[in-house]
Amino acid sequence: MGHFERDPHTGHMTTGHEWNGITELNTPVPKVIWLFLACTVIFAIGYWILMPTWPIGRTYTKGLLGDDVRHDVAQSVKQAALDRSVWSARIEKESFADIQKDPRLMDAVRETGRALFGDNCAACHGRNAQGGKGFPNLTTSSWLWGGTPEAIFQTLTVGINSAHPDTRTSQMPAFGKDGMLPRADIDKVVAFVRSLSQPNAKDLDPTKVAAGKELFAANCASCHGENATGNTEMGAPNLTDAFWIYGGDAQSIETTLWNGRQGHMPTWENRLSELDRKILALYLVDLRKADK
């Protein structure tokens, strides 16, 4: 207790205390630490002078630079839009056909479209736009509402069965649930529908198919067309190809007929700018081309 010693290794004196065998050296604080502290403090004070920092009552110091993050981000978004306008202004102005003719513009469409599609559409239509159960494949030539960029743009803007006042509306009636067709008839139509896209399927009963054909003409053709190739006026799908929204097996088709379907595609009018929607429409058309 209370005896000071010189530590042989460092040459510094101890503080004279000992706690359970632990002693401390009274080594002075190295100058470099004060210097280091001074540097950080000077940096801090400089920052405080330039930037908004200290609260005072009902307001705060604004700083000499008058910086404001909200203003900054608004500026940088605006500036970025301006920088992009070399190409984006042309996309905004020109017709789809003209844009498609310009490979440089289409490069920008492809670059921009990928992430835009990935962040907004891929959740439903998949990263490669090939859809999934309940969500249509967008890389095929068979479109519910038409595959021109104009039609796609319109679909994106108003959505399908969405909350938009001008939404595209479509409804596959619930023939079973609503008692429009008895179970046995539905069976027959299912057989007929399957025969359209899989004419060689082994388990199809030709008498059912024949009966289904008549039922189809009476109940379905008004929407899906005489030869079941669909109708882009009312979003009725083509039933003769290999592409299905809800599945082309007997079980899925039967469920579709029994419960009806009303797919919901959101409107993007308030979420994506007109430019973005235009880009996406072109991107999808281009995707189909690239696929072929």
């Binding site: 907004n120 959740a123 439903c124 309940g134 919901h264």
Partner: peptide, 21 residues
């Protein structure tokens, strides 16, 4: 309102059914 109710239900029941990654 970015996605539909049906999508949310499908996604919550099994996210990988709609977003494989």
């Amino acid at each position: 309102e970015k996605y539909s109710d049906e999508w949310h239900v499908a996604h919550m029941i099994n996210p990988r059914a709609v977003v494989p990654e």
